[in-house]
Write a protein that binds this DNA or RNA. Structure first.
Lengths: 226, 226
DNA sequence: TTTCCGTGTTTCGTACACGATACGCGATGC
DNA sequence: GCATCGCGTATCGTGTACGAAACACGGAAA
């Protein structure tokens, strides 16, 4: 989403203030240093981040489009509330529909190179997942995002990939995932998906993916409403 | 998307400048008065719309999230290019996946009231579709958007509805739809969908919807690349 | 307790300074 | 003569500073 590396012909595009503010706010929200539902004051950010209001407003506008903050007229911005159980289930259902179609399509389209790229992604995960610490989790989470995005890309539908990306399912369940500590099982489920893709089995891949999403959901669900 | 009627407890939220700028730009893009691919200068808009840059920037940020304009660092905003054939097909595929699931779910969930609301929506369309003029088309288009949104709402998945809404399939094919003049057939296909829903037939509803999307796509496709 | 009002805080919008990009023109090299 | 390169100017995006309007909160009065 934030890969604004337009990169005008070989030259790295300068990091605008908007981008760094966006990244910092995203991090603050993900780590819950900005609590769900709490007010996000532009003035406070001006003082805290040491930049003027314009880039902050633009970053907030972007975050609003991402569904991570909410704007109320003449009242300001607020962090979106923690997912309710119903919203969480909606999100999982959405993933089943979109990713389910994507993997079954991917099973028919995947090249050798695609499969190997997926395998390489799996192999880079440090195993056994030793660390209980925040950084280890963060690396795992980033692996998970890359893995699922790659599945979508293999399916090859840009509109669908973008729509998925914009719902930010990973970001919105970040804290929950952290608390649920679900690393090793998730990796095994990923392997099952890759195995089905390798055999070119659409139905098998779809089943494996849906099992994975449901298993993840079951691991996370106890942490809702806390 | 632009229903920012946060409405702080019964009181209508004041129309901010951002909102009116957003609406005007949306109209300019839909009507192709801003050509696909062309530059959108902030300064020019400042002069033309008579407001300062801040609300314009925020409106453009929103439109970027909607995928209707594109921003390049230090170079400015551009209207997104006209859909290529491949992008158009992606969009149709996306609709088949998302809306297909939605109607089959809707067939199981729809109440009498839901069905009647859909029927009412169909009945409000002026028939026979006499006007070849722009205004008639516009009314038809708005009907179509309402009809499809209502289908999604009956399915009851907010995450999926939002994701669909944010891809703006209708907006992005507006001009094409206008040129393809496809009114009467579309209405009949809508009726087939409602009939299947009325019978509580998930498979039938899904088939009817997919037929509708493909028929629409076939009517529109000749107008691509013009 | 409820309503009204004043004060402080924050958002919304404007005006302006700075810096980067784009474009045209002329000079240079082949 | 033609293409390429470099320079200077105009234009536009980015960020700052400031004023005006709206909201939120607390105290006072009925």
């Amino acid at each position: 989403m934030n890969d604004r590396s337009t990169t005008p012909v070989g030259q790295l595009s300068r990091q605008m203030l908007v981008d760094s503010v966006y990244d910092r706010l995203m991090a603050l929200i993900m780590d819950q240093q900005i609590r769900p539902g709490s007010k996000i004051s532009i003035d406070a950010l001006v003082r805290e981040l040491g930049v003027s209001s314009t880039p902050i407003r633009e970053a907030l506008a972007r975050l609003e489009a991402d569904g991570l903050v909410l704007k109320e007229s003449m009242r300001g911005y607020f962090a979106t509330e923690q997912l309710s159980a119903a919203e969480f289930d909606d999100l999982c259902q959405f993933r089943e529909v979109v990713e389910g179609w994507a993997v079954s399509t991917a099973a028919l389209r995947a090249t050798k190179a695609d499969i190997e790229a997926l395998q390489a992604e799996l192999d880079t995960v440090p195993r056994p997942l030793d660390g209980d610490d925040y950084e280890s989790f963060r690396r795992l989470q980033e692996h998970d995002v890359r893995f699922h995005m790659r599945l979508l890309q293999i399916a090859g539908n840009q509109a669908l990939t973008t729509a998925f990306q914009r719902t930010h399912p990973h970001v919105r369940t970040f804290r929950l995932r952290y608390e649920a500590k679900q690393g090793n099982s998730a990796i095994r489920e990923h392997e099952a998906i890759v195995a089905a893709l390798r055999q070119g089995d659409p139905k098998g891949a779809q089943d494996a993916l849906i099992s994975h999403i449901r298993a993840t959901a079951n691991r996370i669900r106890p942490w809702l409403d806390t």
